[in-house]
Computed example of a mutant assay.
Amino acid sequence: MATKSVQALLDDIRLLGGEQLSLSESVRKLVKRTIPSVTEEVKYGGILFASGVQFCGVFAYRQHVSMGFGSGAKISDTLGHLEGGGKGHPD
């Protein structure tokens, strides 16, 4: 079975709505600008980003777009922008 391309997934996200597509593309641009050597892979229904190891992904849904981080519980979020606990969260 062939893996879906990033462009094919973006075409599907476009069907969810312009805001979901815009947010997903904005995340891709930010990640690529921040880590020029990043690679992308479609997996688990979203776009996963890696640079040696997978570190985050962007996932579009009907009502929202989310980002997941492989080790998000280790991120210092002093501004309080992140939600959720996930594995390894101290709470």
Rank of each mutant, 00 (worst) to 15 (best):
V38E: 03
Y61D: 03
G18D: 14
Q20N: 07
L21C: 04
K32A: 09
I47G: 01
L21S: 02
L30H: 09
E40P: 03
D11A: 13
F59I: 10
L79D: 11
G52F: 00
G85K: 15
G52V: 02
I13W: 11
L16G: 01
R62D: 04
D12V: 06
E19Q: 12
D77W: 12
K32E: 09
F49K: 12
G70P: 00
V38W: 01
A60K: 04
Q54G: 11
H64L: 11
R62C: 00
F69L: 13
E25Y: 10
E41R: 13
D11T: 10
H64T: 08
M1C: 11
I47P: 00
A2H: 09
G46P: 01
V6T: 13
L48G: 01
K32T: 07
F59P: 02
G57M: 09
G17V: 10
L10H: 10
Y44W: 15
V31D: 03
L21G: 01
L79G: 03
F55H: 03
S37G: 05
V27C: 10
Y61T: 04
E19I: 05
L15I: 12
S24N: 05
I75G: 06
R33L: 02
A50F: 07
V42Y: 05
Q54N: 14
E25K: 15
K4L: 15
L16N: 01
